[in-house]
Design a protein around this nucleic acid. Sequence first.
DNA 1: GCGATCACGTA
DNA 2: GTACGTGATCGCG
Length: 486
Amino acid sequence: IKENIDKFQNILADEKIEKYGFNLKEKIVQLKMKNVELKGNLFDIAIARYVTGHNIFKKDIFSMVEEYRRILKENNQEYLFYKVEMPLTEVLAWMEINGIRVDVEYLKNLSRQLSGEIKILEDKIYKEAGEVFNINSHQQLSKILFEKMKLPPVKKTKTGFSTENSVLEELSKLHPLPKLILQYRELHKLKSTYVDGLLSYVNKETGKIHPTFNQIITATGRLSCSNPNLQNIPIRTEKGSMIRKAFCPSDNNIFYSFDYSQIDLRILAHLSEDEKLMEAFFNDKDIHTETAQIIFPPDSLFSSGYTDKEKRRIAKTINFGIIYGMSPYGLSKELNITPEEAKVFINSYFEKFKGVKKYIEKIIKEAEKNGYVSTILGRRRYIPELKSEDKNQREFGKRVAINMPVQGSAADMIKVAMNNIYEYFRKRKLKSKLVLQIHDELLFDVYPEEEEEIRENVKKLMENAIKLKVPVKVEVKKGPNYLELE
DNA sequence: GCGATCACGTA
DNA sequence: GTACGTGATCGCG
């Protein structure tokens, strides 16, 4: 291999020679590790298939490229493919090589501490249950809870009774055992997936974790991350968020986080041109509070039963629900109310946000007519479910039609930003590194001397990646680790 | 060893 | 209600 690389180095490094291939990121990473640059325009067949949704096969790669070029042109996806996805491949390769440092000693300590706490909980659980059993086994846990203790099963699964969070929450009112199971689950998840799991991925050479960023997996255009997945590091509970403290910049550097603020709803405002939604963003309002004030007008009868805080929580849930193509049933479950009550909230929302209502109707019609929906940059998702015999499948198809253009356009935007940031870093020969992308957030390992210019310029590059009909806002935070950012 | 199932972490 | 990836168990082989 070494000899071959030497032999072809001139070709690999030649900017005028295009490179065709399948999963080129892998090759870029392998070459980069041997300090060999791969230059010239790239054409990745796997990414062309992902973007076009066509599965072309021909005897040689040249005819395949030729056919994909034709389809990309026909679909109006040339900008998306050549100017967004192909350049991004190199950015992702860079990120994978950069990796992210973790404090191994801290995690090892956390592991020991969790072991102790888990042991204590196990003893309490066995005592309450009156026997020793495998707490991680749904079957065994079900037997204990619903047969031995005779607690009422609230919810079913395909194979038996559910023991999920919300069920155990409900059962805690009747018996101390469910609460202990919940505590056990939280700690066990943290230890196995995040503490011990992450430790097993630390690279011996670099002392860093180098995950894989998958470019051709998701149905919406988002990235995914695996081995390990660093896009789902806990934050919601206090114990969980302690995992974030383990992620830190390399020596003497500072962590910077750049976060798109309410990007999904801004994109919805852009796509729907809804008057009230646009106005809220132009006036830089807290969008959930603003939504609450709009759907619960002060003089309205049905707003009187709730505190301001409750109204904001409901409005926030509805805002999320809108993006997911919510049904009264779905919203009712989330808010713990009846579907009829949920229906009232939804009606009130659509009465005020008429533009959003019209947009949703329009996008569903369009999806039914074309068989697919698109993002701002022309990324497509075909939705065969809309033609299904099954009503549930068709309803699912409608929710997808609502959600994909929003989620996917946000993905378009951050991808453009990442490319522009990479180009900027190269031009300026900056040493700082992009280490993570978490859908609407970018995390950097920053050298102190580059702090100022990066803070200003990354923010601008993100805010100006794609121009919307509403302002785009990026929040900048910094700190000594992934937990303590401000 | 592998896939299905369940549960649960994130945006 | 959207989009993902991982760990543990269990039953098949």
